[in-house]
Amino acid sequence: MYEPPQPSQHCPRKNGYFGHEAKGICDKFYYCVDGQFNMITCPVGLVFNPKTGICTWPDEVGVKGCNSQDIFEFECPKVNESVAVTHPRYADPDDCQYFYVCVNGEIPRRNGCKLGQVFDDDKKHCDWSRNVPECADWYKDRLTDAELDELENPKPKTKKPLRTRGPSRRKPAKAAASQVEEDIDEE
């Protein structure tokens, strides 16, 4: 039996995942349950895929205005693949912590280094900010020197003592088993 949709604010139907109504807003979507919505934001670099209902890479979505070049405003330089790597990496020109991987040398995907690290464009990998001269001060107003040092040189974790468990519910404890035997012998 067919039931017509019952739209409400941000929900074309009572239940489901729906993209944002405004063109160009690709990283936000609505999760609707009984006509009530929750707005969800995709992690940085991902966009909502209306076909799958999850966040994914922009090049996998196929929604006009939401492709990699639109989202990142970054175009992969043309490379000769016989000389270069298949998926070259390039520093994000605006953010030392991020870089672009150009899939098959053509499609940019934004990736990031872990907190405290930056992308070293010469070596093409993440490294501690102090080791990359052009990004040495990247975390200056974000993290203290002590916090950066703790990230780079974490203190060893102390092992917690193992929990002692009570008797097994599957196997009777030895003392309990011998008590049962004694009870049987007495009868």
Rank of each mutant, 00 (worst) to 15 (best):
Gly35Met: 07
Gly35Glu: 06
Gly35Leu: 07
Gly35His: 05
Gln36Trp: 09
Gln36Ser: 07
Gln36Glu: 12
Gln36Lys: 05
Phe37His: 09
Phe37Ile: 00
Phe37Ser: 03
Asn38Gln: 12
Asn38Leu: 10
Asn38Arg: 04
Asn38Gly: 01
Met39Lys: 09
Met39Asn: 08
Met39Arg: 08
Met39Pro: 08
Met39His: 04
Met39Phe: 10
Met39Ala: 13
Met39Thr: 15
Met39Val: 15
Met39Ser: 14
Met39Asp: 11
Ile40Gln: 03
Ile40Asp: 01
Ile40Trp: 03
Thr41Ala: 07
Thr41Glu: 13
Thr41Leu: 05
Cys42Leu: 09
Pro43Gln: 11
Pro43His: 09
Pro43Gly: 03
Pro43Cys: 05
Pro43Ile: 07
Pro43Glu: 14
Pro43Leu: 08
Val44Trp: 11
Val44His: 11
Val44Thr: 14
Val44Phe: 15
Val44Ser: 12
Val44Pro: 08
Gly45Pro: 11
Gly45Asn: 06
Gly45Trp: 10
Gly45Val: 10
Gly45Leu: 11
Gly45Asp: 10
Gly45Thr: 12
Leu46Ala: 05
Val47Asn: 00
Val47Leu: 06
Val47Ala: 04
Val47Trp: 07
Val47Met: 02
Val47Ile: 12
Val47Cys: 04
Val47Lys: 00
Phe48Thr: 03
Phe48Gly: 02
Phe48Met: 04
Asn49Ser: 08
Asn49Ile: 05
Asn49Gln: 00
Pro50Asp: 12
Pro50Thr: 06
Pro50Ser: 10
Pro50Gln: 09
Pro50Val: 12
Lys51Gly: 09
Lys51Tyr: 11
Lys51Ser: 14
Lys51Val: 08
Lys51Asn: 14
Lys51Pro: 04
Lys51Phe: 12
Thr52Trp: 08
Thr52Cys: 01
Thr52His: 04
Thr52Val: 12
Thr52Gly: 01
Thr52Phe: 09
Gly53Gln: 10
Gly53Trp: 15
Gly53Leu: 14
Gly53Pro: 15
Gly53Glu: 12
Gly53Asn: 13
Gly53His: 10
Ile54Ala: 10
Ile54Val: 15
Ile54Pro: 01
Cys55Asp: 05
Cys55Met: 07
Cys55Pro: 07
Cys55Arg: 00
Cys55Tyr: 04
Thr56Gln: 15
Thr56Glu: 15
Thr56Cys: 14
Thr56Phe: 14
Thr56Trp: 14
Thr56Val: 13
Trp57Glu: 11
Trp57Ala: 06
Trp57Cys: 06
Trp57Asp: 09
Trp57Met: 03
Trp57Tyr: 14
Pro58Tyr: 02
Pro58Gln: 02
Pro58Ser: 04
Pro58Lys: 00
Asp59Tyr: 14
Asp59Trp: 13
Asp59Pro: 03
Asp59Gly: 07
Asp59Glu: 10
Asp59Gln: 06
Glu60Cys: 09
Glu60Gly: 05
Val61Leu: 04
Val61Pro: 05
Val61Trp: 02
Val61Gln: 00
Val61Ser: 07
Gly62Asn: 00
Gly62Arg: 00
Gly62Thr: 00
Gly62Ser: 01
Gly62Leu: 06
Val63Lys: 03
Val63Gly: 01
Val63Ala: 08
Val63Asn: 02
Val63Pro: 03
Lys64Val: 14
Lys64Trp: 05
Lys64Leu: 14
Gly65Gln: 06
Gly65Cys: 08
Gly65Ser: 09
Gly65Asn: 02
Cys66Leu: 09
Cys66Met: 03
Cys66Ala: 08
Cys66Val: 10
Cys66Ile: 07
Cys66Glu: 03
